[in-house]
């Protein structure tokens, strides 16, 4: 199975995945928290690129808007409001970290094995290239109306709750 079609999609996928993995690793390994946010934003952007590759333009747009925009900014606020000194570099719990690394690697090994072993059926052509936003809108307001409304309630509750939690104690 070593014959590769060097298509445009492949090249783009390769570049984007390099960006994303690098960003993810940096997010974990950098010492300054602000740098971490920047690399995390790179992962978010890379993921948006992936969505475009997968013909999910609307979701990609939302990804950029919410993740790269809102959540990153929110995180920066979180950092500013708490503490932004450097993370301690020395491992305080070597056993814990080793075990966590082993567990993460094993989990990856398991997933990788599962992916390799699975036999995916040949996909049907993706029919929603044009006017995808319209289709999503129709779906949201027909089949998924109730979840959609519930989600809005959830968001409202979450924001009110966040405000209640974060505001300075009056008494």
């Amino acid at each position: 199975m070593l014959h590769l079609d060097i298509t445009g999609e492949f090249v783009a996928f390769f570049l984007l995945s390099v960006v994303m993995i690098t960003g993810a690793v940096l997010t974990i390994s950098l010492t300054k928290v602000v740098h971490m946010v920047v690399s995390l934003a790179a992962v978010f952007l890379g993921l948006a690129g992936m969505f475009v590759l997968l013909q999910a333009e609307f979701v990609a747009f939302v990804q950029v808007l919410i993740y790269t925009g809102a959540i990153s900014i929110l995180m920066i606020f979180g950092i500013m409001m708490t503490e932004h000194r450097a993370e301690g570099t020395d491992p305080v719990k070597p056993l814990h970290e080793t075990l966590a690394a082993v567990a993460a690697l094993s989990l990856f090994g398991l997933l990788f094995f599962a992916i390799r072993a699975s036999d995916f059926p040949e996909p049907a052509p993706f029919p929603f290239g044009e006017d995808q936003t319209l289709e999503i809108g129709k779906l949201l307001y027909t089949g998924y109306l109730i979840p959609f409304e519930l989600l809005s309630v959830l968001l409202t509750v979450a924001f009110i709750g966040a405000i209640a939690l974060a505001r300075k104690e009056a008494g």
């Binding site: 979701v59 809102a70 929110l74 409001m81 989600l151 924001f159 966040a162 405000i163």
Partner: peptide, 13 residues
């Protein structure tokens, strides 16, 4: 994404 946004907001709070 929406739920994640809510989670992030509450988490930071």
């Amino acid at each position: 994404i929406s739920v994640a946004a809510a989670e992030a907001a509450v988490g930071v709070a």
